[in-house]
Nucleic acid binder design. Structure first.
Lengths: 228, 228
DNA sequence: ATCTATATAGTCATTTTTACAATAACAAAA
DNA sequence: TTTTGTTATTGTAAAAATGACTATATAGAT
């Protein structure tokens, strides 16, 4: 067995973290503070240790470099072309997550000198093949969000229907009709009212809802398929 | 740089190959002919070389062990729990494909002593975590086939609408209404008539169709979304 | 009170889905 | 040659969903 504190040198992790704020989608990038890519922006990520699962590695690396924590990372897929990394052969496993930007305070950690959100429509030049990974992962998200209720992670626990609609409009890049969007979502029985309204808004306060994961899982068993 | 004929020792490939025949879904397994897992059934797969992409590795391994060739393998995802492989830490990248069973003649090759198809509802005990990988990959397929026209790979080039329906029924494990299924598919404009009918059937011969990938790609550009 | 911006409910023609009935074609059995 | 069994297709009508609107409600600000 290998020593538990060694890293696996042919394998890395990269995280594409999507955030939502002010009706726009952003991704979380780090600036490398050392090595040949010093000064370049890149996806948060790094090396996997022998004694941790790849899921754990993804979470550890993200948290160490950006201070974003307590989130669920899901694996997208591995990228393994021969020349994608300089000097040696490295295959990277890409994870993604959707988070509510306002819930996190960013802190650069580890080998990283800076952390920041970048609007998805205006991402900087990135190290390695990270631009390609990001684009593919975003396309994947655009498809996935239409067929699975994953968008709710981008919002606060309690959210209004307009917030939800703006999220979909931002990701899908298209306008949606308000009354119809509302009806469609309500009919699915996936949202439950919080018996609570918005506060400190200068207009009529909206009802707040939360996503009901239990109902969703039950519906899935019955063959339900989420569609937007 | 590493020698090009070396393998990457912490990384492997496994392939879940789905086949369709007689209204049932099967997967392709190999029996290991050597090593600690000698005599056990497992997914086709093995080690990645330094000078090949992971996509190429998947295809090479599958072809060498089973003689199934000229197919498109798509990556599903990596499996990387700590104890999933004995003796050392190995992360595996899972690929899948859908094929028409009748198009291939199986031949055991490489370190494999036997190759065969197994009905998905009755798979044997398998080495490592291959049972878990197979189940997850099949769930993934059940979801994916409803949102993307990937099922056509399981059929002959020319197929009848009933064949297509039986395929969906086998994967989704539910009965579908014949006239409605037919109408739904035809309305998508993804099938083109072959101007040819079934032969050697003792009942009324069905019209044969083929999947029109060009039309599908054009529709995709216009925002079309395949749904069953 | 009035204005303005948003929340939420209602309307209605149109399209789509669903469930089922009906007809057509063809090979083999009677 | 007629009947029978099996599958291929087409038809149809009620129900449901969709899409494009309109209308009303509620709040703070002027």
């Amino acid at each position: 067995m290998n020593a538990t504190n060694e890293i696996i040198d042919a394998l890395s992790i990269d995280c594409v973290i999507f955030g939502f704020k002010d009706a726009a989608i952003s991704i979380l990038l780090v600036k490398h503070g050392q090595g040949v890519t010093k000064g370049q922006w890149a996806l948060p990520g790094g090396w996997i240790m022998y004694n941790e699962s790849i899921d754990d590695a993804a979470y550890r690396l993200l948290t160490a470099q950006t201070a974003v924590k307590n989130i669920y990372l899901e694996q997208y897929q591995a990228f393994g072309k021969v020349g994608r990394f300089p000097e040696k052969r490295v295959i990277t496993i890409c994870y993604y997550a959707l988070v509510n930007i306002e819930k996190f305070e960013l802190h650069a950690g580890g080998s990283v000198s800076q952390v920041d959100w970048f609007n998805i429509r205006n991402i900087p030049k990135m190290a390695f093949d990270h631009t390609e990974i990001t684009k593919k992962c975003f396309s994947f998200l655009q498809h996935k969000i239409r067929h699975e209720p994953i968008g709710f992670n981008l919002l606060p626990k309690k959210f209004s229907l307009l917030q939800l609609q703006e999220l979909y409009e931002a990701i899908l890049d298209q306008k949606l009709d308000k009354p119809n969007f509302r009806r469609r979502l309500m009919k699915m029985n996936l949202l439950v009212s919080c018996d609570e309204k918005q506060k400190d808004v200068w207009h009529r306060a909206a009802q707040l809802y939360r996503f009901d994961k239990k109902s969703y899982d039950q519906l899935l068993d019955k063959g339900f398929s989420f569609e937007i």
